[in-house]
Design a protein around this nucleic acid. Structure first.
Lengths: 206, 206, 206, 206
DNA sequence: TATGAATGAGAATTCATTCAT
DNA sequence: CATGAATGAATTCTCATTCAT
């Protein structure tokens, strides 16, 4: 089971739902194709299992990092860094989460929906606490959520493939070497701190 | 040609690159499958043509909205609202862009990479101008770019499919009606203004 | 063992040899798939066991109904009614027998062939006795056998599924309500008596 | 199209619906497997097309043989011989028809149901005419239909596979050489005349 | 005696692509 | 410029069978 989920996670993350083939997944997992069907069910069920595994783990991890005693700003920072860290250690997360949201629930089992709500609920609680304490000003928590996720998800992705795309951006490099260099530094830099700083600034009272 | 691109855009947006079938696209476009090959080339070329059409149009539109005379904060607001408006009128944009970035350049022709850089370049120019004028503080422009795009893209997607997902979130509604109601209001609300406000706040000097 | 045979009979009758899956049979029997292999052997052996069970029982039943003292016409009537009664009580018989004959002996073990010959031999004996006594005229016993079996088997099948097919024959009903009504009465009527009458008439001397 | 239907007819007749593989059919038809899907649709549609072709042809043929001027007994004989002749020239008919009826309409397209009703309607008309003219006595036409079809269908099948089954009946041969010889003669004999004679006798008035 | 797990072989179906017309 | 037909190569999924426990 573990091997199946891990293999599938890798392949789904690399190629998306329709891009991934069950053959490929079986090979990556080191099991027979039929074994996947025996234990998990069809491709869609497998996809759901992967999402639940990946996102559920993220929820657990981030929850464990935040402690009640922290000041609320720190909680928010921890939340962002927690997601960023998971992303760092666990590259498949962003594409998988992006698809989960983006697929709009098609192929999205209830467990996964719950996971997504849970992880959002954590942020909501932090923002409400901050607002009550007068530390944060009223904001749309969903927008904050989307900005954090969007930034981390996109970034990780671009970073991961920057090198492979060297040719793609060759035109740019020839055209405007300065811009190219700047872009490269941004892409390769540590984005988590930037996100923390910007989000904190944007929600803080005053 | 127009019909082919439009049909393909619809199908690619709905199903992604590997999820879309040339048959489906031909049907959506109302042309024979072979005609697509005659005019555009293979599936990858078709995908490139769609991306170029969609993203290129966005670049042009946003560029036309920003005038040199505007104060830099307004330029930034216009930029964000321009992208939001394109998204509003042109639903396929976010999934297409998300997949373009997410696929990490696989199936991504050079033209499209250029488009993506162009649209980022516009933001970069605005942020640099703001910094020079002392209106903005130094930030990682790429992070800003990602936050804007991420928020708008994710949001549009969730909004578009919220109603279809009603069942999925039924558990949540039963569990915590308050949270559910809040979430619904956030999802359905006008997100562009929130993004503008938060981004401006997060980049402004002081 | 009993449970296996019963489950398998049900499934084979419903789907035929290749249409039935061992998984389905195991589920219908309420035993583990491997248990079937342990007790019976492979699918073909299982099929043989089912046929032997079903047809062997029919042979025994019909044989027990016919007594030496009966006049030969009554023997023939008893034979036909015996088969009809078995069919009535034991719906899987006709499809199983039809498939057994129809498959042309593929998957047909020797035991079952013997059963089929035995049941035919009983008819043969009756017809020969009738001929000797001058009650029946010379006929091709095999044709008589086929007519009896064919009529009972087909009928049972059509009757069993008439209601499910209502839609299929809707066109006919709209077209020619009279014919439809007649057909329905024929299908639902007691066919055994009709077969007895017609067969007796067709074989009787003069 | 012709080649596909012919190949499929051969294979379905030999192995039944689930026993037949689309690969095998494609090979028998001498076309690529995908071509079958392009022209006909899935396996079930293919099966329906075969049934319609086979049974529809039978209807047409038998109808063309019967002329209005014939006395009604001859009409009945012609009807039976017409079906027998079709069976003779067109071996796949019986198993295919048996399955059509036996499947109870599952997988049975409306066209085919119509065909079956048509061929039965012809017999019905003959029997009613005979009854009106006082030549036939009242009988259940459906039973007559089933006896004719059953006898011809089973017979053709047993005959076709008698030789292949030689081993199966070896036990019988050793046991009762006389019975075996008789059986063989019956099986190999011309059954159509026997059926005509018996059916005519069983329905005739007096 | 019974079973959960595993698997190689094959089955149905789809798909991107080509080509003659 | 357009299209119906054709196809090789995958792709998803099933199945009969085995085996360690």
């Amino acid at each position: 089971m573990r091997r199946i989920i891990d293999g599938a996670t890798k392949v789904f993350a690399a190629s998306g739902f329709s891009g991934a083939s069950v053959d490929e997944i079986a090979a990556a997992a080191g099991v027979n194709k039929a074994t996947i069907y025996y234990h998990v069910g069809d491709k869609e069920a497998l996809y759901g299992a992967v999402l639940h595994d990946v996102i559920g783990n993220t929820v657990a991890r981030v929850a464990s990092l935040i402690s009640e005693e922290q000041p609320v700003e720190e909680k928010l920072a921890t939340y962002i860094r927690g997601i960023a860290a998971t992303v760092e250690e666990y590259p498949p997360l962003p594409p998988v989460m992006m698809r989960a949201v983006e697929s709009g629930g098609k192929n999205l089992p209830a467990e996964v929906a719950t996971d997504l709500v849970l992880i959002f609920g954590m942020l909501l609680a932090i923002l409400e606490e901050g607002e009550e304490k007068g530390v944060f000003e009223p904001v749309n928590p969903f927008v904050v959520y989307l900005m954090i996720l969007g930034a981390l998800a996109f970034h990780r992705n671009v970073e991961a493939t920057w090198d492979e795309q060297r040719e793609l951006f060759a035109t740019l490099r020839d055209l405007d070497a300065g811009l190219y260099g700047k872009l490269e530094r941004m892409v390769k830099g540590n984005v988590a701190d930037d996100v923390v700083r910007m989000v904190l600034k944007s929600v803080s009272a005053r």
